[in-house]
């Protein structure tokens, strides 16, 4: 998982317009990735265009254009963007430990690990300026992991409470109540009323 704040060190100084430059850099990487990933696809066969022809063409165009923008951004002055090395390191440590947990303990324990760490180091993440992305990402991840085994109501409750902590105006009691309200509402509205094929409560508890 990429944090939006992954910074190249010394972003300022040798690049005149780092905002355009580093935005385009990611797209250049995307183009290179696409070129690599479509290498094994056939191109033109007889008179028919192959599955790989058009993706490679556009990946090349994207890469060339990204280079162009980067080149112009290197020399034309523009606004700067704030990157922070400590934040990047924190995110890297956070993600890599989570990956290790995932490897040995599966998605659900990973989600719990992510949640616990996020709340334990809430102050730290806030100081580093990455509180919002961390909590929003963890909240969505937890929803995705919990919705099947625990049912919609609990997954929504978790999503609301964790994502609420992304804001500096976080109030614990208020978010607990709001999570409860939205959890019950979602179960009633989407499952009872719209008959979507989700379980409202943990499926283990459903009667046959």
């Amino acid at each position: 998982m990429n944090s939006p704040d992954t910074p190249p060190a010394n972003a300022r100084g040798w690049i005149a317009n780092p905002r355009d430059f580093f935005g385009a850099l990611v797209l250049l990487l995307l183009a290179l990735f696409v070129l690599w990933a479509t290498l094994d696809l056939p191109g033109q066969e007889g008179f028919q265009l192959g599955a790989g022809s058009i993706p490679r063409l556009f990946a090349l165009l994207l890469g060339a254009n990204a280079l162009l923008v980067m080149a112009s951004a290197a020399f034309t002055p523009g606004p700067s963007v704030r990157y922070s090395m400590p934040a990047a390191l924190a995110v890297a440590a956070y993600c890599s430990t989570a990956l290790a947990v995932y490897r040995f303990a599966g998605p659900q324990l990973t989600a719990i690990y992510l949640i616990v760490v996020a709340f334990l180091f809430l102050k730290k993440f806030d100081e580093l300026g990455i509180r919002a992305p961390v909590f929003i990402a963890v909240a969505i991840f937890a929803f995705g992991v919990f919705v099947k085994p625990l049912g919609l109501a609990i997954a929504v409750f978790t999503l609301v409470v964790i994502s609420a902590a992304a804001s500096r105006e976080f109030r614990l009691v208020e978010s607990l109540i709001w999570g409860l309200v939205l959890g019950i509402f979602s179960a009633l509205f989407f499952i009872l009323l719209l008959n979507l094929p989700f379980a409202a409560i943990p499926p283990v508890l459903l009667s046959q």
Partner: peptide, 9 residues
Amino acid sequence: RLLYPMILV
């Protein structure tokens, strides 16, 4: 602070 969790849901 109440609106965005709802949007996310």
